[in-house]
Amino acid sequence: MRVALVPGVLAFLPEYAGQVDPVPDVRAAALAAAAWLAEDGPVSVVADEQGARVGRHLLRAVGAAEGEGPDRSTGYLVVANGSARRTDTAPGYLDERAVPYDAAVEAALRAPDPDALAGIDVALGAALLVGNPAALVHLGTLLRGAGPALVDYADDPYGVQYWVMRWVVTDPGHVSEGSDA
């Protein structure tokens, strides 16, 4: 089973296109991750409503088939990102708790450490304008039995922490239901 994480960047959407792409690198990485998922079969999107628009757009852009439910999917595209309060020019201005919060999440993603992801402080995440902490918790359940992350992108070009990571889960245990994290 393949799992990928991409950020819910609204600038990915065609309705917000400009003449010059402000996010070329993270977009390229996100599209490549979506294509990698699609190679293996239908893909389910794990996201909130806004993130789902981003996830579905990425899947459509690479011609991926969207799974009809967890049991029919061989891959998961999780749409989530870190804090939008990392710098004084970030959308949510600077909160000094943002960088350590993201660092802890990133360490849990890289390992991966499903228990650490399950224990994410969702309320603090919301305060730090994390792009859907619940999806990160859900991601933790998907990563049980996964090998280390392939990190394609990890940066905060606009004061928002983006990650594009991929995992291969060789021993999928319990797959939680729903895609409305």
Partner: peptide, 11 residues
């Protein structure tokens, strides 16, 4: 015409 480069609020 598309804006030249837009990122405000859609990061």
């Amino acid at each position: 015409r598309l804006p030249r480069r837009a990122i405000r609020g859609i990061q």
